[in-house]
Design a protein around this nucleic acid. Structure first.
Length: 431
RNA sequence: UCCGGAAUAGCUCAGCGGUAGAGCGGGUGGCUGUUAACCACUAGGUCGGGGGUUCGAAUCCCUCUUCCGGAGCCA
């Protein structure tokens, strides 16, 4: 018997084939049985007719429950009622397991229940669609970087100290070496990689022990950090824009069905694939103040500010040249204004907020050292990082993308927790 | 951490001082074309825990727990 995937049904019309998968839903009507069958690659309605199967086999099939696993044999044909869809005329059903009563019903559920049943919830159509978009985004990022001479350079997850000198670290005991921490960013390690490979990126889980409780935060999330030698501030933003636009095009091309399942406004995504606007932090604050905000020029942007800035914009917007006081120590000062740094945040449209943070890095030993001293960082712990400015330093830039935030925007969903198989949040570690 | 809100059947909720309800899911039966299929019957509850007010509390008050939404921090 030939086993195929649901996604390939159209290539086998009229042939007898077998599918292996699960029951999404089942409806019966006397001598007819409709099984909504799924196998991971897609869904198809299978129609079992009592006289075709025989009395005994039909009775067995009628006992199928939601999420029962089965191997189903039949002949694919065009759907009698729905244009562009296929269905399977069932000849034989082999039950792998009759599933017990499935906790997730066809009606609505609350988020607490669904998150507690995340191991089952991921089978639902919308979750399936989001996870496929996540895969596509992940793949598109790697593809773009590979095509632009970036090499994968994996940063350690267990680290001896804070990457950015903040306090939001998960701590653990590391044998006789004292405390170790889960990485909150691979960026500093990545900077070492460019001196060997030229352009590098890492992609992996990072951890923030912040007591954040919003729809944009996870305590464990996947970040892609990229770093490139000889790239300066302006080119850094060009690379980011090229990357994001490649991701948008990939998702539109490969995930049409998934976007439909999620009822994503695809036109909004198409329009975002256009040159990104740029605005300095100063201009952004001026704009917000003109709209009645009392925000100061030394302030970071809040969630509401990000929404206000992108209101009416079809593309993402770069906010660049930030006050040095509110950005990380490693950002290069603006040669035109020593109070500013050559950093940029990329803010997604449609209210999705920040998705990338990037900057040109400080490449001068003395300037970097004095900046670290000013922040009272333990210099001896970062000697390896300072060494990079002693042995063939070069101008360089990099940026970090939060995968889940990007997937949230692409999918057009409300909450980041649905964009990772098992979200880790301040009040949730199970399952 | 701060500010709001919620907790009643397996799930989603209604009931808001006087005998615990519906829809879905489960079970049984019916139906050749169903689309969260439909129809009939049926089982299913320490009304989150503790304390108080009252003749009487799911309902009012206090407290604890858990969760949700928002803020800050950030990707």
């Amino acid at each position: 018997m030939q086993y195929i995937f649901v996604k390939d049904l159209a290539k086998h019309l009229g042939e007898e084939i077998s599918l292996r998968g699960w029951v999404r839903n089942i409806r019966s009507s006397g001598k007819l049985l409709f099984i909504i069958f799924r196998d991971g690659t897609g869904e198809v309605q299978s129609v079992a007719f009592k006289p075709d199967l025989g009395e005994e086999a039909f009775e067995q099939a009628k006992r199928l429950t939601i999420e029962s696993s089965l191997i189903i044999t039949g002949v694919p044909k065009k759907h009698e009622k729905i244009e562009g869809q296929y269905e399977l005329s069932v000849k034989e059903i082999k039950v792998v397991q009759y599933a017990e009563e499935y906790p997730i019903s066809k009606k609505e559920h609350g988020p607490d229940f669904l998150l507690s049943n995340r191991h089952l919830w991921i089978r639902a159509p919308k979750q399936w669609a989001i996870l496929r978009i996540r895969h596509t985004v992940y793949y598109a990022i790697c593809e773009y970087l590979n095509d632009n001479a970036f090499y994968r350079f994996d940063s350690p997850i267990l680290t001896p100290n804070a990457c950015e000198g903040t306090t939001t670290l998960f701590e653990l005991d590391y044998f006789d070496e004292g405390k170790a921490y889960l990485s909150q960013s691979g960026q500093l390690y990545l900077e070492t990689g460019i001196m060997s490979l030229g352009r590098v990126y890492d992609f992996g889980p990072v951890f923030r022990a912040e007591r954040s409780k919003t729809r944009k935060h996870l305590t464990e999330f996947w970040m892609m950090d990229a770093e490139a030698a000889f790239v300066q501030h302006d080119e850094n933003m060009q690379i980011q824009e090229g990357l994001i636009r490649h991701v948008i095009r990939s998702v539109l091309r490969k995930c049409d069905n998934e976007l439909d399942i999620l009822e994503r406004d695809k036109e909004a995504l198409r329009k975002a694939d256009a040159p990104f606007r740029r605005m300095t932090h100063y201009e952004a604050i001026e704009y917000l103040r003109s709209k009645g905000s009392e925000i100061s020029h030394e302030s970071d942007l809040g969630a509401a500010d990000e929404v206000a800035l992108t209101e009416g914009s079809e593309t993402p917007i770069f906010i660049e040249k930030w006050p040095k006081s509110i950005k990380a120590f490693y950002m290069k000062r603006d040669p035109e204004n020593p109070d500013l740094v050559l950093g940029s945040d990329l803010i997604a449209p449609e209210g999705f907020g920040e998705i990338i943070g990037g900057s040109e890095r400080e490449d001068d030993y003395e300037l970097l050292l004095s900046r670290m001293q000013a922040e009272k960082m333990p210099i001896e712990d970062y000697q390896w990082f300072l060494d990079l400015r002693k042995y063939g330093t070069v101008p360089h830039s990099g940026f970090g993308i939060g995968l889940e935030r990007l997937v949230t925007w692409m999918s057009g969903i409300h909450h980041i927790r649905e964009t990772i198989p098992f979200p880790r949040m301040i009040y949730r570690i199970y399952p």
